[in-house]
Write a protein that binds this DNA or RNA. Structure first.
Length: 334
DNA sequence: GATACGTGGAT
DNA sequence: TATCCAAGTAT
């Protein structure tokens, strides 16, 4: 795997250049948080923007949390952004990043995977790094029958057996690159795989059958209403509660979310609200949302929130669901 | 152990 | 269009 990595590693902005010294722990940490359940393609431009704006953990810790949340907009899983800020401050308070897996594990937003990845990649510690790519490769390599996630202890034990004592960070990244480009979920390219000669899943003739996974639950359909209050070229935005869905993010005001369209229930301020004919659909991790769009021209009513220049709404740092709704409303004639 | 938590690309 | 899936963590 290390030989394969030396000739096939992807060039990624958070990786040290080939032949250079160990990568910057700040960049490794930031990239690992961003990459949690998120594709490389989505992370790359966000990572570049973050390190350009905040080149060090000290700079990130000193930033207002609202700036960080807005910069994170569009990446999803916004608890990561809140934890990122808390973690940066914790690291500054400590003086530097912990260098051990246990020390890293204690930081906000750093779980078992991320602690192992940072320890191995940034600090050269031997650590067993198991992400979704590694789990898939290892489940095929050993033809692990126990469905995931219940079979994760078995996957972890098998990964431990094949993790080398040196360059375990490169080994982890090699396994992830292999999972991403060769040992893919649907149609693995076994003819290009350096492990095919020792892969039990390949020998059995159905590597794509691993890992076995528990069935997923259907997503319920829910409904809600977005309120677009416009006054003198400005639109009312609010800050969502600090925890829960889209927690802490700047947002358009919404009414309750329910099993049937809630209409004009719970507007942010009294006005002559008008429902537009179109709706906006959005899919979250665990439910589908169909949004009605309520609009009103208001005359300077007091309301909790901030009035944001409508033409600059793209710079407000809105989560995608609200950006979609804003686009639909601005394109509509009303 | 189960559930909440986003989004966009691939198939 | 529908489904799957991603460098998971917190509770």
């Amino acid at each position: 795997m290390l030989d394969w990595y030396d000739s096939h590693a992807r060039e990624l902005p958070w990786r040290a250049a080939p032949g250079s010294n160990a990568p910057d722990p700040y960049r490794v940490w930031l990239s690992e948080i961003m990459l949690q359940q998120t594709t490389v393609a989505a992370v790359r431009p966000k990572f570049e923007a973050f390190v350009a704006r905040w080149p060090s953990v000290e700079a990130l810790a000193a930033a207002p949390e609202a700036d960080l949340m807005a910069a994170w907009a569009g990446l999803g899983y916004y608890a990561r952004a809140r934890n990122l800020h808390a973690c940066a401050r914790a690291v500054v308070a400590l003086g530097d990043f912990p260098t051990t897996e246990d020390g890293l594990r204690a930081l906000p937003g750093v779980g078992a995977y991320t602690a192992a990845a940072i320890a191995a990649i940034a600090f050269g510690e031997r650590a067993v790094v198991v992400d979704a790519n590694v789990a898939r490769v290892v489940a095929r390599l050993f033809a692990i029958e126990r469905p995931l996630p219940g079979g994760m202890p078995e996957v972890r034990a098998a990964t431990d057996q094949i993790t080398p004592d040196t360059r375990s960070g490169d080994f982890a990244q090699a396994m992830m690159d292999l999972g991403s480009s060769v040992c893919t979920p649907r149609s693995p390219r076994c003819l290009a795989c350096p492990l095919s000669s020792v892969c039990e899943g390949y020998r059995l003739g159905h590597p794509e059958g691993f890992p076995i996974k528990a069935a997923k639950l259907a997503k319920p359909q829910r409904h809600g209403t977005i309120f677009w209050a416009q006054h003198d070229g400005k639109v009312l935005l609010v800050r969502r509660p600090p925890r829960g869905l889209l927690g802490g993010m700047r947002a358009l005001p919404t009414g309750p979310w329910a099993d049937t369209p809630p209409g004009l229930a719970d507007p942010p301020l009294p006005a002559d609200w008008q429902l537009l004919p179109q709706t906006v659909a959005h899919v979250f991790t665990h439910f589908r949302l169909k949004l009605s769009l309520a609009v009103a021209r208001v005359d300077g009513h007091a309301a909790d929130g901030e009035w944001w220049d409508e033409t600059g709404i793209d710079s407000a740092g809105l989560p995608t669901v609200f950006a979609k709704a804003a686009d639909a409303i601005r394109r509509a004639r009303w």
